[in-house]
Computed example of a mutant assay.
Amino acid sequence: MNVLWLILLSVSIVFAVFTGRLEAFTQALFDGAKSAVEISLFLLGIISVWLGITRILEDSGLIYRIAHLFRPILSRLFKNIPDDHPSLTAITLNVLANLFGLGNAATPLGIKAMQELDSLNEDKGTITFEMMIFIILNTASIQLIPFSVIGILAAYGAENPAGIVLPVLIATLVSAVTALTILFSFRKILK
């Protein structure tokens, strides 16, 4: 990937030199770097708040109550996970972070969920069906309110930054249901 970025940057510099727009290229380069830093700090704030909230939920024991509320849904998907296993808590936190469009905050929670799921794995180094289901849920990232995207759109002055809520919800639901349907179909075929 680094090679690709190097090629793109090199080609851009060559074109800027040959078209006589090196000054505009340099200005755009610095403006892009400034925007990247601003957005990174903005997203860092969102991630920090969410991780703080999840820590409070975990320390207070409220996450176990939330996990209990999600249990009927999760038990249909994750049939081989014991009711009191810590992977359910990690999966619940990951799903909640994704529901609120905080994909960056969901990443460490997803890693924790995979580690917990691997603790149930008898054949270490291979992926289990439950891990596949979790990967689909995490990747599809069903979002009720995509806070990060709304925040970025608002920061860039979009007229209606919340206008993406319904399309994002529909797209993430369709992708999750489609992927889960394919996974369960293949499981039935290959049994």
Score class of each variant (00 low, 15 high):
Met1Cys: 12
Val3Gln: 09
Leu4Phe: 13
Leu8Lys: 09
Leu9Tyr: 04
Leu9Pro: 00
Leu9Ile: 12
Ala24His: 04
Ala24Asn: 03
Gln27Phe: 00
Gln27Trp: 00
Gln27Lys: 03
Ala28Thr: 04
Phe30Pro: 05
Phe30Cys: 07
Lys34Glu: 05
Lys34Gln: 09
Ala36Ser: 15
Glu38Ala: 09
Ile39Gly: 07
Phe42Trp: 04
Ile46Val: 13
Ile47Asp: 02
Val49Met: 09
Trp50Cys: 01
Trp50Leu: 04
Ile53Lys: 02
Leu57Met: 13
Glu58Gly: 04
Asp59Cys: 02
Ile63Cys: 02
Tyr64Leu: 14
Arg65Asn: 12
Ala67Thr: 15
His68Ala: 15
His68Asp: 15
Pro72Gly: 02
Pro72Ala: 02
Ser75Arg: 14
Ser75Thr: 14
Ser75Ala: 12
Ser75Asn: 12
Lys79Asp: 05
Pro82Met: 14
Asp83Glu: 15
Asp83Met: 15
Ser87Ala: 15
Ser87Met: 10
Leu88Cys: 06
Ala90His: 09
Ile91Glu: 10
Thr92Asn: 09
Thr92Asp: 04
Asn94Phe: 11
Val95Asp: 07
Ala97Asn: 10
Leu99Arg: 00
Leu99His: 02
Leu99Glu: 03
Phe100Trp: 02
Gly101Tyr: 00
Leu102Val: 13
Leu102Gly: 08
Asn104Trp: 10
Ala105Arg: 00
Pro108Cys: 08
Leu109Met: 14
Gly110Val: 05
Gly110Pro: 13
Ile111Met: 13
Lys112Pro: 03
Gln115Pro: 03
Glu116Met: 07
Glu116Gly: 11
Leu117Ile: 12
Asp118Trp: 03
Ser119Asn: 14
Leu120Tyr: 06
Asn121Phe: 13
Asn121Glu: 14
Asn121Thr: 14
Asn121Leu: 11
Glu122Tyr: 05
Asp123Thr: 13
Ile127Ala: 11
Thr128His: 05
Thr128Gln: 08
Glu130Asn: 15
Met132Val: 01
Met132Gly: 05
Met132Arg: 09
Ile133Asn: 00
Phe134Val: 04
Ile135Pro: 04
Asn138Trp: 08
Ser141Leu: 01
Ile142Trp: 01
Ile145Met: 06
Pro146Lys: 06
Pro146Leu: 12
Pro146Ile: 13
Pro146Ser: 10
Phe147Thr: 11
Val149Cys: 01
Gly151Ile: 07
Ile152Asp: 00
Ala154Asn: 06
Ala155Val: 11
Glu159Lys: 14
Asn160Gln: 07
Asn160Asp: 10
Pro161Arg: 07
Ala162His: 07
Gly163Glu: 04
Gly163Ser: 05
Ile164Trp: 01
Pro167Lys: 07
Leu169Ile: 04
Leu173Arg: 01
Ser175His: 03
Ser175Ile: 06
Val177Thr: 10
Ala179Phe: 02
Thr181Leu: 11
Ile182Gly: 01
Leu183Ile: 06
Leu183Ala: 06
Leu183Glu: 08
Leu183Val: 06
Leu183Met: 06
Phe184Leu: 10
Ile189Val: 09
Lys191Leu: 12
